[in-house]
Design a protein around this nucleic acid. Structure first.
Lengths: 190, 190
DNA sequence: TCGCCTTGCCTAAAGCCTTTAGGAAGTTCT
DNA sequence: AGAACTTCCTAAAGGCTTTAGGCAAGGCGA
């Protein structure tokens, strides 16, 4: 009797990520998760400190997955190809895993953030720019431009911000990547 | 005895916006608001349908304020000047009113969105582009580029994403607006 | 001015969520 | 088998949202 359900922190976080994709990151709660595991809520608290801890772990998982995919996509590519591949990973992940993607945007406290895969992201973005002729502060500016654009575009898309006007958002995405590639190749000097 | 507190929907929404700036949009709840008005929670439900309705109203207020400011900033300006002014309004508002700004990003159902000031925003962005030589789909692409960049940059900044690297985020902001102006003036043709 | 009606605010209550404390039943190791 | 550890449980406190029903304040017609 009273067979154990086999809850572990890892399984909890993975299930939480799945759940986020199904019902939205905000709706991922210890209660809901307990239901899924057919276990009483209080039982989760042996594996996870509290609701915030759970959400943070899901965020870290998402950041990790995203960095893995990006690194894979960047392997063997440079310049425009690298830019498009990286951007594609970002956007595809957001479409495939909206909940995880939302999680990846959770604000982390500085300590946690520093230990997260967020750092790898920054390095990968810099790697892309090695294919272009940018140096000094302008390289950082360019990283920030790309990061802002990716994040902003995908967020607006997710909010349906592009839904009721033409052309389709995918067209803009493709075209704008071309435009950005061109901009990076021909970066305006001071 | 039992003096009336004078709660109205309008006062509720305004106070909610203030509250959002103080403690964060997510923490704006009927309970907290009732405390501020020194009134029992249930009393709010005569003025606001439910928690979601309250949050939506705050979002609409923020969108309205933002559109007002943007319209004012754009008056009499064109080209680069208009771009910088508009962008400044956006970013300044986010800094001055982080809670309201977060509210402005609440996902609205299509019906509500269509009736919101979001529409005015789109028009204002298009107005900026009239100062540049862009036509057809590329104009829409450019609107989306600007929108994505503004939103992404400000969001990353708010999350502290730029805090632990140099140069300061303000430097990137200024420089990138120059770069974007230059890009719009010299938009790559197919 | 008096009684009426609308409306603002209240109490009560149900239902859900998080989190802590302490106990009992599996599991593992000796 | 017994000790020690871990997993899961019950119990309980406290907070949040929302609905239902009631009393009283402010405005209005008679």
């Amino acid at each position: 009797m009273m067979a154990r359900a086999g809850v572990t922190t890892e399984r909890l976080v993975h299930a939480g990520a799945e759940l986020a994709d199904e019902i939205g990151f905000d709706a991922v709660t210890p209660s809901e998760l307990a239901r899924r595991f057919d276990v009483k809520v209080a039982s989760l608290y042996s594996h996870v400190k509290n609701a915030h801890d759970l959400r943070t772990r899901i965020a870290l998982l998402a950041l990790d997955e995203l960095a893995d995919r990006a690194a894979a996509a960047l392997a063997g590519r440079a310049g425009r190809e690298a830019l498009v591949a990286f951007a594609g990973v970002y956007r595809d992940y957001a479409h495939e895993h909206p909940g995880r993607f939302a999680a990846a945007q959770l604000r982390l406290d500085p300590e946690t953030a520093a230990a997260s895969a967020g750092v790898r992201h920054a390095e990968l973005m810099r790697a892309i720019l090695r294919g272009y002729d940018l140096t000094g502060p302008d390289q950082t500016h360019a990283v920030r431009l790309l990061g802002s654009f990716f994040r902003g575009f995908v967020a607006l898309e997710a909010d349906g911000g592009f839904d009721h006007s033409l052309p389709a958002s995918t067209d803009s995405w493709t075209r704008l990547l071309d435009v950005l590639d061109s901009l990076l190749r021909d970066w305006p000097r001071l």
